[in-house]
Simulated scan of single mutants.
Amino acid sequence: KGGRAHILGEMTKALGSARTELSAHAPRIETIQIDKSKIRDVIGTGGKVIREIVAETGAKVDIDDEGVIKISSSDLGQIEAAKAWILGIVEEPEVGKIYKGKVVNIVDFGAFVNFMGGKDGLVHVSEMKNERVEKPTDVVKEGQEVYVKVLEIDNRGKVRLSMRVVDQETGAELEDTRPPREPREPRGDREGGRGGDRRGPRREGGRDGGRDRGGRDRGPRGERRDREEGGDPNHMPAFLKED
């Protein structure tokens, strides 16, 4: 009994109670469940996406046909990074929410930003700053990390983003001081626009009042055909009469 008490005392010096969490270096597996329709998004074409997740984070990722994903590693940071990447792919963006993303493509009218791992959205040049921006390259460059706010998601899934209402240093939302645009007038209500009919009333009987260019009244098609063929409805062309 004395020896047992001594051993327990020595053990208490090293660890007085059970740990509430595993060591950061202990091998572990975390499991998450995703919707089956999102499996192909996580795997990617030919496994491109899932291979990139494994290569970048160092964690091992396995996914089955039911959408159960197992992420394993001896480094907790690797597991958390892979988990955040996957959740970013399967999560749907929310209007009004702020995300951190990366500029992946710059065009004349703005820049496309990749956020949430697998989502792309457009920051129009008018949404980069409150003042006028001549060229998107004056504000951003490819590979740059930016904070964006989701302004709109249309029925085709296209996402419209804004940088000017987010503090690019902290990611905090800023007050929109720009006055709202006035609604456009419908085309049909514009004076002299294409929607208005500026043409006068049409003449009866067509352009020339039912007369042909020679000034003669047009008869039924059958009568015109008879006149052209010599007045005989049974007229037969000469080449058909030859033996």
Rank of each mutant, 00 (worst) to 15 (best):
A18P: 00
K38F: 07
I98G: 05
R184H: 10
G195E: 08
F239L: 00
E10R: 13
P179H: 09
R19V: 02
A81Q: 13
E10K: 13
E145H: 08
E223I: 11
G44Y: 04
V159W: 05
R40I: 06
I98E: 02
R164H: 11
R4H: 13
G193T: 11
L8G: 00
I106R: 07
E30S: 10
E91M: 04
G188I: 11
V95A: 10
H6K: 15
G231Q: 09
R199D: 13
K83R: 15
I79K: 06
V107L: 13
K158C: 05
S162M: 05
G67H: 11
I34W: 03
V68F: 06
K97S: 03
V49D: 02
V133M: 09
I43H: 00
S126K: 14
D176T: 05
R28G: 04
S73H: 09
S74A: 13
R221P: 04
K36W: 01
V125Q: 06
R156D: 15
G230F: 05
K97N: 05
R218W: 04
T45W: 06
G3P: 03
I34S: 07
R213E: 13
G77W: 01
R160G: 05
A81P: 00
G9R: 14
P186F: 08
Y147I: 08
E173S: 12
G222D: 15
P201S: 12
I153S: 06
M128E: 05
L122E: 06
L151F: 03
D108L: 11
V150C: 04
T170R: 12
E52A: 13
Q168W: 13
L8A: 09
P233V: 00
N155C: 02
T20W: 08
R181D: 15
D62P: 05
E127S: 04
V140E: 01
F109Y: 15
D232Q: 07
V95L: 02
A84W: 02
G196E: 14
G215A: 01
E182P: 12
R218G: 04
K241S: 09
Q144G: 03
G214W: 13
I43A: 07
Y99K: 05
V125F: 05
E173I: 10
G88H: 01
R40G: 07
D154G: 00
V95S: 02
R198K: 11
G67Y: 11
V54R: 12
G222S: 15
D176L: 08
A55E: 15
D226W: 04
K83V: 02
E142T: 14
S126V: 12
G230N: 11
Q78L: 03
I153M: 08
N105A: 12
G193M: 10
K241P: 01
G196N: 10
D226A: 14
S74F: 01
R156K: 14
E145R: 12
S73C: 08
I53Q: 02
V133S: 11
I71C: 06
A111W: 03
D217R: 14
G101L: 07
P180C: 01
L122N: 08
D154S: 08
V159G: 07
K60T: 07
P201N: 12
R178Q: 14
K158Q: 15
D176Y: 03
R216Y: 02
